[in-house]
Amino acid sequence: MSPAAQSHGFLSPSGAEVAFVLVGLVTFGAAIVTVTTRQIVHAALWLVVALGGIAVEYLLLTAEFIAWVQVLIYVGSVVVLLLFGLLLTKAPIGRSPDADSGNRWAALLVAAASAAVLVWVVVDAFRATWIDLDGPAAGSAAVTGASLFRHWVLPFEALSVLLLAALVGAIALSRRQPPAAAAGSRAPDAAQEGGR
């Protein structure tokens, strides 16, 4: 149990807690809209809101470096990538009635059940646990950098290899097929269409 537990009551929230809960509500709402909206491009935009909300939560948890990384990578690049993906697969703009599969009720059930279980467990476990945010900064760039390059150098370098591999793999996968292979793969199609 944290030593700060004595000074904070559950019914007397601090300012940070109020802000966290409010931003959390916004984030959760955005996430819900992301996974339920029928307009596919809107889903991507609501995802921006949700990810940005998480970045704010990081800030409130004093992990500022990660918050900026979150904004840079997720909001800046991942969402843009997703939007490009939507464009390339010719996702319909506007309401598309078939955005959800026939599995949605089962999905809702499973999600609700797991949410209930997880929230119950977490609340049950950490009912009386407080985070002490007043200590030395735990997530500043300096601290994170020192830790990363002192203790986590090897995984960090391995990660760079992984990223390189992902880069090459993504290029290899999305590259247009060479003419010979393309002809080979298209010939049966032509035959099928000719036969039809």
């Binding site: 807690e17 809960v21 984030t27 996430a31 949700a50 929230v119 407080w130």
Partner: peptide, 17 residues
């Protein structure tokens, strides 16, 4: 800050996912 807040938010986001 109460640990339950971030933890519960995390769980809810996860289940939304």
């Amino acid at each position: 800050m109460h640990l339950v807040f971030p933890a519960v938010l995390s769980m809810l986001l996860f289940c939304a996912g």
